[in-house]
Structure formats: structure tokens, C-alpha cells
């Protein structure tokens, strides 16, 4: 008995956490997936009904807007964050005085909830109070920056704030990558008379491809999960012009009381994340033979 206990103690210790994860993660995913195949409205119903909820979802204009927004936002958010993050990392890598302090400032948005910093962003982007009125008070009377209240442009304000929040993090990833580049190779290239920009473009940056991959994965994952950003900045408005799948799902679940649509939209989100994360985790966790 005590021999069995000693042998199995590691398993017994991990068991509660494993049970919790199986139930609260995988069990719940299955539950949501199943409810998306029923006619649940305010209360869940458990009689199978096929893919009706998905047909309805893909015919809903508001969902179309949310998916379109995710595409536009995701693409710009990832591209601009990476470009800016890489630029900042390269700039910071030039033996800068006060590097630590500057790095701290670039990265602090990641430590704060966007519900907090969104309060300021909402104000800065507000045409009557923010940048527009400041520039006008400087004498440029016709200056206009009203994207926040323009249904066509509002999603780009979400991009601006999202990039502000995440680019410092991308910078930290790239900076760590730059610091691990072999200095000997760079010295050799310099002795050969190759100038610094060329060295970066053709030697240093190509060697960072694993960092690019990590950054794209993390940012894509952040983009799909973005919720606070939209809630704090636009509340999904004007109208539902800045809805993302995450806010759409929340609206269906908690204000519309349409569980079937909420479950279907959550399942679509889940599939999208899984399509990105599963291959990545698989390649990261695969035992290395070198």
C-alpha cells in the first residue's frame, strides 16, 4: 500500500490540476461546441439541431462586420507592431545611454489594463477634446481627426491603440533576439567594410526568423482575443462598426440572451485560435534532436 503510494505520488499530485483542466477547458469547449449545434436561446437546450446556428451566424451582417474588422485589425496590428517593434529594438541596440529607462517606458503599456489606458486614449482620439482640438488651437483651423466617431475609420483607432499597447513587447522579443546574434560574424562583416544598415538587413534580421514567428503567433493570438481594447475605446461603436468576434460573442451571451449564437461565434473563435496555436505548440514542444 505505502509502496504504491510512494510510486504514484507524482501522479496523485498532478491529478487535481489535470482534472480541473480536463473539465474547465476541454469539457467546456465540448459543451460550447455542442450548444452551438442546438436551438438554444435564453436557456440552453440539448436536442441536436445541426448547423443552423452557423448558417444564421454567417448570414448576420453584424458578424460579417466583426470578422472583417478582425481581418483588417489583425493584419495591420501584426504588421505595424512587428515593424515598429523591430525598429525600436534596432535603435535601442546601438549602445544607448539610459537604455533601461527607455525600454521600461516602451513596454509599460503591456503591464496596464487597457480599461485603464483606454480612458486616456478615448480622450486623445475624441475630436472635441483630443488631438483635433489641440492642433486646431495651434492655428490649423481646418485640421480634422475624427476617426473615433467615423464608422468607416473607427477600426483604425483600435489599431493605433493596439499597436501602442503591444509594440513594446515585440521590441523586447526582438531585442533579446538581437543580443543573442553572434558578435563575431558582425565584426567579421565590419572588417570586410560592409556598412551597418547592410549588416542588419542581410545578416542580423534574417537570423531572427524564429523571433518573427513567435511574434506573429503571439500577436495573432492577442488580436483574436482583443476585447478590452474595443470595449474601452469604442464600446463596439459607432453602431457596431468596431465589433470584433470577442465583443460580438459577449453581446450575444450577456445582452441579447442568444446562447446558440454566442456558442457558435465562440466556437468559430476557438477554431481560429487552434489553427494558429496547435501547429506552433507542436513544433515548440517536439523533442529536439541536436
Amino acid at each position: 500500500m505505502s509502496g504504491w503510494l510512494t510510486r504514484n505520488i507524482p501522479k496523485i499530485v498532478v491529478a487535481p490540476s489535470l482534472a480541473a483542466v480536463l473539465f474547465f477547458v476541454y469539457g467546456f469547449i465540448v459543451w460550447t461546441g455542442y450548444v452551438s449545434l442546438t436551438r438554444s436561446r435564453i436557456m440552453p437546450r440539448y436536442d441536436f439541431d445541426g448547423f443552423g446556428q452557423y448558417v444564421k451566424l454567417f448570414r448576420t451582417p453584424r458578424w460579417d462586420v466583426a470578422m472583417e474588422n478582425l481581418f483588417v485589425f489583425g493584419l495591420l496590428f501584426i504588421a505595424v507592431s512587428i515593424a515598429l517593434g523591430l525598429l525600436l529594438a534596432v535603435l535601442l541596440d546601438q549602445r544607448i545611454r539610459a537604455e533601461g529607462a527607455i525600454r521600461t517606458i516602451y513596454l509599460y503599456p503591456m503591464a496596464l489594463s487597457f480599461i485603464v489606458t483606454g480612458t486616456a486614449w478615448k480622450w486623445i482620439l475624441n475630436p472635441g477634446l483630443g488631438i483635433e482640438s489641440v492642433v486646431r488651437s495651434w492655428g490649423w483651423e481646418s485640421f480634422s481627426f475624427d476617426w473615433l466617431v467615423d464608422p468607416e475609420m473607427a477600426i483604425y483607432t483600435v489599431v493605433i491603440a493596439g499597436v501602442w499597447q503591444a509594440s513594446g513587447f515585440v521590441m523586447a522579443l526582438f531585442l533579446a533576439g538581437l543580443r543573442s546574434v553572434d558578435q563575431e560574424v558582425i565584426k567579421a562583416a565590419m572588417v570586410d567594410g560592409i556598412n551597418l544598415p547592410r549588416i542588419y538587413v542581410s545578416i542580423v534580421i534574417p537570423s531572427l526568423s524564429p523571433v518573427f514567428l513567435s511574434a506573429v503567433i503571439v500577436l495573432a493570438h492577442l488580436a483574436i482575443k482583443s476585447f478590452d481594447l474595443v470595449i474601452a475605446l469604442t464600446g463596439g461603436g459607432p453602431g457596431y462598426a468596431t465589433d470584433l468576434p470577442a465583443t460580438y460573442m459577449y453581446a450575444m451571451a450577456f445582452s441579447r440572451g442568444d446562447l446558440g449564437q454566442a456558442a457558435a461565434s465562440a466556437t468559430v473563435m476557438m477554431m481560429t485560435v487552434a489553427a494558429i496555436i496547435v501547429p506552433y505548440l507542436y513544433s515548440e514542444l517536439r523533442p529536439r534532436h541536436d
Binding site: 474547465f24 477547458v25 467546456f28 469547449i29 459543451w31 460550447t32 450548444v35 440552453p44 493570438h221 483574436i224 482575443k225 468576434p245 470577442a246 460573442m249 459577449y250 451571451a253 446562447l259 454566442a262 456558442a263 461565434s265 465562440a266 466556437t267 473563435m269 476557438m270 485560435v273 496555436i277 505548440l281
Partner: peptide, 9 residues
Amino acid sequence: FIPFQVVLL
């Protein structure tokens, strides 16, 4: 890494 929307309900 799951989007937490999938566990809310």
C-alpha cells in the same frame, strides 16, 4: 491559449 469566450457560458 484558448479564447476565453469559449468557456464563458
